[in-house]
Every structure is written in C-alpha cells, then in structure tokens.
Amino acid sequence: MAGNLKRPGGELASRPLHFIWMVDCSGSMHGDKIQSLNYAIRQTIPDMKKAADDNPNAQLLIRALKFSTGAQWVTASPISIDDFDWNDIEAGGVTDMGKAFELVAEQLKIPPMSERALPPVLVLLSDGQPTDDYKKGLTALQNLPWGKKAVKIAISIGQDSDDNVLCEFTGNKELVLQANNPQTLVKMIKWASTVAKQVSAPNSNPSANGPAEIDISNVPSASDDGDVW
C-alpha cells in the first residue's frame, strides 16, 4: 500500500468570471445622475463579495471603465471583488461610447481572456447618444468569440438616452433596463450586479449562437415615482 498518493495533474484553479462596468460620465450625467450611479455601484460591492464567497469555484474579477471625451479604464487590470473599491467618478465631456467598446474588445480577446473563463458580464450605463463612430467599436466587440458569449446589459438613464444603440449592444431589448429616477437606477444597478451569481453556476446549456442565457424574470420594474430625469 502506498497510502495517500499525490493527486495527478497540474495546478487547479476556479474559473475566472470577468464583470465590467462601462460608465458614461459625459456632461449630461452631471449632478444627480452621477451621484446616484456612484452611490449605487458602491452599494453593490458587499452583495457581490457575498455572492463570490458563496461560490468559491468562480473567481469574480471586476473592472470599470469610464467614457466621455475618450474612454479609459478606472481599474487598470481585473481585480478580485475582495479588493475592489469604488472611487467616485465625475461627469464632463462628450459621449465617446465607441471608444469604450474598443477598450472592452481589446480585453475580451484570447489572450488576455482565457478559454476556460465563465461568460463575462458587461454592464453599460448611459444617459445619452454616442458622439463618436460607435459602430466600429461595437462591431469589433461583437465579432469576438467572447464578445458573442458575454452577457450584455444596458441601463438607460433618463429619457434622453438612445435606447436603439443600447439595444444594439445588448442584442435583446429586455436587457435594456430603464432608470428614470435615482431609486430605480439603484435598483437596476443592484440587479445587474446579481447576474454574476447566475453566470457563475457550473451547469451547462445546449449551445446557442448568442450570449449566455440568464434569467430576467426578476428584473425590477421601472418606477416613475419621484423625480424623473
């Protein structure tokens, strides 16, 4: 008898799950909108940490980028939800949404993405219309294997946003969530953050050509109570 032998095979690891906030911080977001957004994203962190603790077999990695005049990563590289903190962002400038798509597309290539990752979750928050050639960046994103499989959610802030563009991004109008006041924005951002938990389950689905499927039956209803943007 040799007793307990060492496990054959190489290094083990949980599967990475990339969650990306794409935040419009153009001038029209100034004031109440950006304040509510900063507040809401910060509020999601404890729940996302708990969701990550509940599933140690998925490694929840967060990133955020902001776009206005140009686009840039707020977090330089993907970081564990345990180390993630939200620093308030400020609004000003135009709406270069296409640049944001290009930045995300660069990061969804293989590499740096791993083939064994869970489907990434992209959450786009915007209150306006793109001021740049968004099609080029969006096409680059949609043509990538992970761009196709990513779960894409858009939160349309206020009544002036271009929902057609947001719908082009998500590929599903049910995943364009309307937030016309601060309370609803907080609810929608919270719901979007819970999608990470859904995507992290190891169960399989029969193949489809589109993004990974998620349950949208519990999306909060949009409320127009209170101040309307």
Binding site: P8, G9, G10, E11, L12, A13, E115, R116, P202
Partner: peptide, 19 residues
C-alpha cells in the same frame, strides 16, 4: 468537462496523462 475546467490551463490539464 468539469475535470479540464478545473485546471488553470490546458498545459496543466494535459499533465494528468503522464502522471
């Protein structure tokens, strides 16, 4: 697939053969 998906990379998964 639960087996291969548990390794950090394909190379680490393939080590199971020789081991």
């Amino acid at each position: 697939d639960g087996f291969a998906n548990s390794f950090v990379s394909d190379e680490e998964f393939m080590k199971t053969g020789a081991d």
